[in-house]
């Protein structure tokens, strides 16, 4: 079972690598959205510093949203979703493997890009640690919640827009705790509470999301 699970992650990474560009596209979008803000609100450093955390997190959230609709869609279209569903492991583990692969190809690259954007946005030097840890804990949650939305809308008319409508409200707690962790760190406060909340949300979704997404996928296969 572990073997199949790891093979599934490898499969999706291999496919992402072969088809190319998914991670780069997400990163490019991330950087692009963030760089719109100095253009929109003006380049005054104190202003940028104040909105840095929120801007980076919102942009990361949007980048993840944008990458979600391919999570199951491609596999449904070519029939390989049937094959994945018929593997001798529970469908929820298949979903978990795919969510992990999604995180490795989007959430993780975004996390690694974030400090660079911190520089562009005049982020306070004390806040980089909180930004990194927050994104490391928060972006997997985004991938997992996104898996539910992607599974519910796979094979559905105008699924992409619907997916955004469904998933965005569910992303709000991650956004709030992610941003407030960075702001707390910038003001020299402890970020333990934020980190604990983000971890709690991650542990909760890691249990619930694969099951809910597996139920939803069964509808698409039916």
């Amino acid at each position: 079972m572990t073997h199949t699970f790891l093979m599934l992650i490898r499969r999706d990474l291999l496919l992402a690598h072969r088809q190319g560009g998914a991670s780069l596209l997400a990163i490019a979008f991330f950087v692009l959205v963030v760089s719109l803000f100095p253009l929109g609100v003006g380049p005054a450093p104190e202003m940028l510093e104040r909105i840095a955390a929120g801007t980076i997190w919102v942009a990361a959230l949007l980048s993840v949203l944008l990458s979600l609709d391919r999570m199951f869609q491609a596999d449904l279209e070519d029939g390989s979703l049937d094959q994945l569903a018929l593997l001798p492991i529970p469908l929820s583990l298949v979903v978990l493997a795919k969510a992990i692969a999604h995180w490795l190809t989007t959430g993780l690259p975004l996390t690694l890009t974030a400090p660079l954007l911190g520089l562009l946005m005049q982020l306070s030097p004390d806040a980089y640690g909180a930004l990194l840890i927050g994104m490391l804990l928060g972006t997997p949650t985004l991938s997992l919640i996104g898996a539910i939305g992607a599974a519910l809308t796979v094979g559905v008319r105008r699924g992409g827009v619907l997916l955004t409508l469904i998933v965005t409200p569910l992303y709000i707690p991650v956004l709030i705790f992610g941003v407030s962790a960075v702001e707390a760190a910038a003001q020299g406060f402890s970020t333990t509470a934020h980190v604990l909340f983000l971890s709690a949300m991650l542990s909760g979704t890691i249990v619930i999301a694969p099951i809910a997404a597996a139920w939803s996928l069964k509808l698409a296969l039916d």
Partner: peptide
């Protein structure tokens, strides 16, 4: 199935 279920990039 009636779909091939193959990955065209591989």
């Amino acid at each position: 199935g009636h779909q091939d279920g193959l990955k065209t990039a591989l």
